[in-house]
Amino acid sequence: MNVPHIDQMNAGGGLPLLSVRRLRVEFPSRRGTLLALDDVSFDIARGEVLGVVGESGAGKSLTGAAIIGLLEPPGRIAGGEILLDGEAIHELSGEAMRRLRGRRIAMIFQDPLTSLNPLYTVGEQLVETMLTHLELTPAAARERALALLDEVGIPAPAQRIDHYPHQFSGGMRQRVVIALALCAEPELIIADEPTTALDVSVQAQIIALLRRLCRQHHTAVMLVTHDMGVIAETADRVAVMYAGRVVEIGPVDEVVRAPAHPYTRGLMGAIPVLGDEVERLVQIDGAMPRLDAIPPGCAFHPRCAAAFARCRIECPELQPAGATRAACWLYAPAEMAEGGGR
């Protein structure tokens, strides 16, 4: 097997901040081991926003959980590596991982209420996080907390800092969560569906805020979402996941404008847009397979109109496809395609 030259399109070159290589996550169960992530590879450069998009069950949230060491048992990393700034973090002990979490990698969850402790004021939570990870005096930490709340757009932060989470509205709470994620100046934020629980008008504000702050703080973001619209507006690059694999990865503009993988094409066509009045939306028939019934070959082949013999037998690797990289035999170099298929 040739050495996978995975993702040479990360910005700037040099060492990527986060590098995920052939990540494999398994869930042993008594009916056999379920392969939840298979051969997932991607890079995130410093200050870059990588969108990870896919339908429910595609493994996108699981990827985030694996990186930050929060896989729910019995899930376990069964292969591959996760490198943060060149250092393998998938083998770190629980204690070392805990120190890393919040300090170098922060997490933003879907429901802001679950990420905030209802018994402490937002100020106390911010200060405590900072004191844990940074060498600051409590007074300086509070000063910083105030500045952060102001930065994430909380009006009258001097009063709001002493309020409890339930006294904030949904959108304001998610702003507090973003402040909490940023307060130790992490290098990477993993945002798992950060806007899904919010109203559409609030979603737009949170996305804009996240994008602006990460640019200012030069924080890299792994944005996990099912919403292609959110990705299109926020991310620099996008990885499309299907049945536990990355099927396409590339710059957002390219993937949105000219998706290469048949699945991505179907996904884009399925989104109703305002501009054109179509009678019917493009639909991908069927549904994503369950983990215990992933078909052999390319997992997408039963739903793929372009599938040919090879797709049913061999699982494709990511290969250059126009301006993006797609895991699809359609883009295999001719000399690699055995017999051509079609």
Partner: peptide, 13 residues
């Protein structure tokens, strides 16, 4: 280019 009908897919389970 349309190959086989998708009915071949749900062979499992």
């Amino acid at each position: 280019m349309r190959t086989e009908p998708p009915t071949s897919a749900p062979a499992a389970a």
